[in-house]
Design a protein around this nucleic acid. Structure first.
Ligand SMILES: [Zn+2]
Length: 273
DNA sequence: ACTTCAACCTGTGGGC
DNA sequence: TGCCCACAGGTTGAAG
């Protein structure tokens, strides 16, 4: 479910609502998703809520942190009306509760000290909104791989935070075939792609993230994001491309649904292999 | 060192 | 209704 814009939307909300609150209890209904001893953080206060890649980092007053990954179906809801059968963890504060729902049970919350946190986060590539995410960096990374460009966009060690929605949307915006071997991108295409990535991520944040067809993504106040209303290509197979009216196709690339306009994002005019 | 792909879970929706 | 298949915002580790 949540990619950079969704996690960032959640981060901003939580950084307002749980700041300086004290953890008084933790209810764990799915042990493997909260493998540590909750006693370690009962009594601690929230100092900040940060994000790295698709991870949320909650900094606590006792030199410990909570590292949270929502994977495909995780939700963090602030004082929801009810718990449900997907509720896996509840963090109880002196005032209010933060509820972790997760239909598919892939997500997790870990308690880490500061060294362990650094260790966990050092593998990620540059944040798209940092200066490290430069044309020069992309050229360096792209020329080393023959994998399809979309696969590289999803590789968190190369670029942090892009997931399947925003990879599809960025390639549509840049009019580049998802299957194109990444080392075959021209400098112009790399510039166009970088710009497209920044654009779709900014739009995603502006619209509070995307709640796609299955509505698994919710903001902490239990409302939907609205970026799905602005999708160019994601899950639009069978519909007409807005630019050229060609029917949008769906293929499987690296096990992920991949959507593209065969005319605007074509590769057939060229030979790569 | 690189790339691919099953595995981790629990659904929903469509075709027959 | 029921069964079977495809599909779902992610990551990992094993195998080639
Ligand atoms: Zn088109």
């Amino acid at each position: 479910m949540p990619e950079l814009p969704e996690v960032e939307t959640i981060r901003k909300y939580l950084n307002k609502t749980i700041l300086r609150k004290r953890i008084v209890n933790i209810k764990v209904f799915s042990k493997k998703q909260f493998p540590n001893n909750s006693e370690e953080i009962v009594g601690a206060k929230i100092l900040s809520v940060k994000r790295r890649a698709k991870n949320l980092i909650i900094e606590l007053s006792n030199e410990k942190t909570l590292l949270i990954h929502l994977k495909l179906s995780g939700q963090l809801l602030w004082r929801p009306k009810t718990l449900n059968k997907t509720t896996r963890i509840v963090i109880v504060f002196d005032k209010g509760e933060l509820v972790f729902n997760d239909l598919r049970k892939f997500g997790w919350i870990k308690i880490l000290n500061l060294d362990q946190l650094d260790l966990e986060l050092k593998k990620f590539g540059p944040e798209p909104f940092s200066k490290d995410f430069s044309i020069k960096y992309l050229q360096k990374v792209f020329k080393k791989s023959i994998r399809p460009v979309k696969t590289i966009l999803l590789d968190q060690e190369k670029i942090a935070g892009i997931g399947n929605i925003y990879a599809n949307e960025a390639l549509s915006e840049a009019e580049i075939s998802p299957q194109k071997p990444v080392k075959a991108l021209t400098i112009e295409e790399i510039k166009k792609l970088r710009k497209a990535i920044l654009l779709v991520l900014r739009q995603g944040i502006k619209y509070n993230g995307a709640s796609a067809a299955d509505k698994l993504y919710l903001k902490p106040d239990s409302s939907n994001g609205s970026y799905q209303q602005h999708f160019r290509i994601y899950q639009k197979n069978g519909e007409k491309c807005k630019k050229c009216n060609t029917i949008i196709e769906r293929i499987n690339l690296g096990g992920r649904g991949t959507f593209f306009c065969p005319k605007c994002q074509n590769m057939s005019r060229f030979r790569y292999i």
